[in-house]
Simulated scan of single mutants.
Amino acid sequence: MPDALERSRRIVFTGAAGGIGTMVRPLLAAAYPGLVLSDRVKPGNLRPDETFVSADLTRPDEVAKAVEGAHSVLHFGGHSTEGPWDAVLQANIVGCYNLFEAARQAGVKRIVFASSNHAVGFYPRRKKIGTDVTVRPDSRYGVSKAFGEALGALYSDKHGIAVTCLRIGNVGPRPLDVRRLSIWISPEDLVQLIRIGLDHPQVRFEILYGASDNAATWWDNSRAHKLGYRPTGKAEAFRAHAEAEQAKIGPDPVGDLFQGGTFCSAEFTNDVKRAGP
């Protein structure tokens, strides 16, 4: 738990108006009062102790203003799904660089980067993987998240910023289909991982999987557990709902083979036997 001095840190939360930001903000606020929220649009239900700073990640001057005086940054901003190359490039690659560089210049000590399972989406579902595997992105979006992880390693090793990259599965109150039984994470468990990134003294550069205690997991998250992660969410409790929703979707001859699901099958022109490791 942060002591009184640590609780007074200026923590900037980019992408605060997005879906994940909206879910975790109330939970973070209890531990870290006075969050500085940043996005292109103002989040709803701003608390009296929260501050909003408008910033477009593609504009270095706006990003610099947002992180001015910050001790830590939660970088959840950017393009949140697959999209045209220019949209992904500007928000998730140029924007991510702008954020890390502005943080370096501002003397930021810690960054928690919202990476994604789509950085490794072309691993087959039958294969359990750790965080030390070669990235196998399933989309332009996945490529941008792999870039963010690499950038985090650079800024950790070269500039001493403590960086935690969270390969987030799917955040929500319950898994939405069978694939998400393996990758689901509750908002409460995601906040646990964020707090490790903000507070754990051993963090230098870490990649952790953003998943709850899922019986069907494809990921070895032992490093997160060594850092104190104790997830309470269990996807298996929602299996009946997930299977019912899956029946409405139907089969995907490509996506059903790989961890990235429909991100793998979209625009796919390869032979499935030649895809993935």
Rank of each mutant, 00 (worst) to 15 (best):
A4V: 10
N270A: 13
A29E: 11
R126C: 08
R25L: 11
V171M: 05
G69E: 06
V94L: 14
G197H: 08
Q90R: 15
I207D: 12
R126E: 13
L28I: 03
R110E: 00
P43A: 09
F238D: 09
A247V: 14
R274K: 13
A237R: 12
Y123H: 12
A87M: 08
A146D: 10
G261Y: 06
I20P: 07
P43Q: 07
N92I: 04
P2E: 06
A55G: 07
D213K: 03
E101Y: 02
D49Q: 03
K273T: 13
I249Q: 15
K42I: 12
V171Y: 02
I207K: 14
W218C: 14
L181D: 01
L37Y: 03
S38G: 05
D256N: 06
A247P: 14
I196R: 07
V24R: 04
V191A: 05
D199V: 09
V163H: 08
H71Q: 04
F100G: 02
L166W: 10
S156P: 06
E149K: 14
G15S: 06
N221W: 02
I93W: 00
G260L: 02
G130Q: 06
R9G: 07
A91M: 05
D157G: 03
P253E: 06
F122L: 15
N117T: 13
L35Q: 04
I168C: 07
I129M: 11
R10P: 05
G169P: 06
V120C: 15
R239G: 03
A66T: 09
T51A: 05
T164S: 03
V108W: 04
A275C: 09
E206Q: 05
E267L: 12
A17T: 10
D132W: 00
L176K: 11
P124N: 06
P33F: 02
K273Y: 07
K158N: 05
N45S: 09
G19T: 11
E62S: 12
Y97A: 12
V272I: 10
R10K: 14
H241T: 13
E236H: 09
D3K: 06
D177A: 09
T232S: 11
K145D: 08
I11G: 00
L176Q: 12
I20F: 03
A216R: 12
R110H: 01
Y229K: 00
L27C: 05
D256V: 04
G148T: 00
D39S: 09
G77D: 01
Q90G: 12
T262V: 12
R136W: 08
L37Q: 03
R47L: 13
L28T: 01
E101Q: 10
T232D: 09
I11K: 00
D220Y: 02
V53P: 05
V12F: 02
A224P: 08
V120I: 15
K42Q: 14
K158A: 07
W219R: 13
D157Y: 02
G95K: 02
E236L: 13
V191T: 08
D49H: 03
K109Y: 07
K65I: 04
P84D: 14
N117P: 06
S80L: 12
S116C: 10
T134E: 14
P43K: 01
A17L: 14
P187D: 11
L46V: 12
A87F: 01
D86H: 13
D189E: 10
G34H: 00
G21S: 11
Q246R: 15
T22E: 13
L89V: 08
H79M: 08
A103Y: 05
A55I: 01
Q105S: 12
P48F: 04
A150C: 15
H241A: 13
